[in-house]
Write a protein that binds this DNA or RNA. Structure first.
Ligand SMILES: [Zn+2]
Ligand SMILES: [Zn+2]
Ligand SMILES: [Zn+2]
Ligand SMILES: [Zn+2]
Lengths: 157, 157
DNA sequence: ATATCCTATGTTATAAAATAACATCTGGGG
DNA sequence: CCCCAGATGTTATTTTATAACATAGGATAT
């Protein structure tokens, strides 16, 4: 692992730890391990992929264990769920108030999380006009990243 | 069924029929039936709910039949998929270029589809800044509709 | 310390959602 | 009529997620 992402990982884990302490919650070994795995992955991963990785490590949890950890991390805002892909991904804007807005390359699955402030404003407005009160939003944008656009052109000129 | 929604249903079916003809595609009985069911429902419904309804009607298809019909209708833009709920819903803006933007009451599941023009612009911009080319987006907003807000207050004052 | 309680995890079984793979049918175009 | 492509039927399986109940373990109070 390179220095940069090592820093990022440790910073995130430290942040999560502090947050849990502040909220009187426990960042247990499973929860910590799942969060670490999600942070390390470049792409969104499924619950069962995480399960398989833990099995490889010698730990052999059943699905409920993973899903509980994921639920906890979701509730604390440490991770997000990409519903169109049944995948989970670590938050890249920890500590910042934001909505889940994701650009996802439909070819290589490279994913970028946006803050989505202006989208939030728009959504609050529109919800208001329809007499809905906004609670939480998920925005998933099916995209092609630059390298995949080029590749696509080469494949089908 | 009241006159209004009857009109809406027949207008939608006529539209779908014309579109299929124009695209040299066949709106077969299953596809037509599934679209009708989705239009009639007030709330998003799951593939297996549709299956059950068809079984009640005497027709007994297996899951692939429904999913094929749903895939067809999705491709033609007649319906949308709400991924966070594993549900499908008829489009209420047929014939208008738009993105799938949905307000969904998390209590009663009342759903409103927005056109999302301004959101689209924002997303195109942001995608551009990140060197992604936007293909298609899904925006699901977890809300409380007005009646459910009131109810909520009564439940927990 | 130890009893108690609450929370987290383990375990087993099952539900729910979606697809794979292959067979069969059907409706036009030649 | 024959052929072919697309649509549906059929069976089995995969993938994703949860229900239900048992066990463990850390904190608090006595
Ligand atoms: Zn985030
Ligand atoms: Zn890509
Ligand atoms: Zn629509
Ligand atoms: Zn409601």
């Amino acid at each position: 692992m390179d220095k940069q992402s090592s820093n990022t990982l440790s910073r995130i884990m430290t942040y999560a730890e502090k947050e849990c302490q502040a909220r009187s919650l426990r960042l247990t070994p499973v929860r910590r391990r799942v969060l670490e795995m999600l942070v390390k992955h470049k792409h969104p991963v499924s619950a069962y992929q995480l399960l398989d990785e833990l099995v490889e490590e010698g730990h052999k949890p059943a699905p409920p264990t993973i899903y509980r950890a994921l639920d906890f991390l979701l509730e604390q805002g440490f991770i997000h769920r990409l519903a169109t892909q049944n995948n989970f991904v670590a938050c890249t804007h920890l500590g910042t108030l934001h909505m889940g807005v994701f650009l996802v390359c439909k070819r290589c699955k490279k994913t970028v999380e946006l803050l989505g402030d202006s989208i939030r404003e728009t959504l609050v407005d529109q919800a208001d006009q329809n007499e809905f009160s906004l609670e939480e939003a998920l925005v998933e944008v099916n995209c092609l990243c630059q390298p995949c656009q080029s590749q696509q052109e080469r494949d089908q000129p």
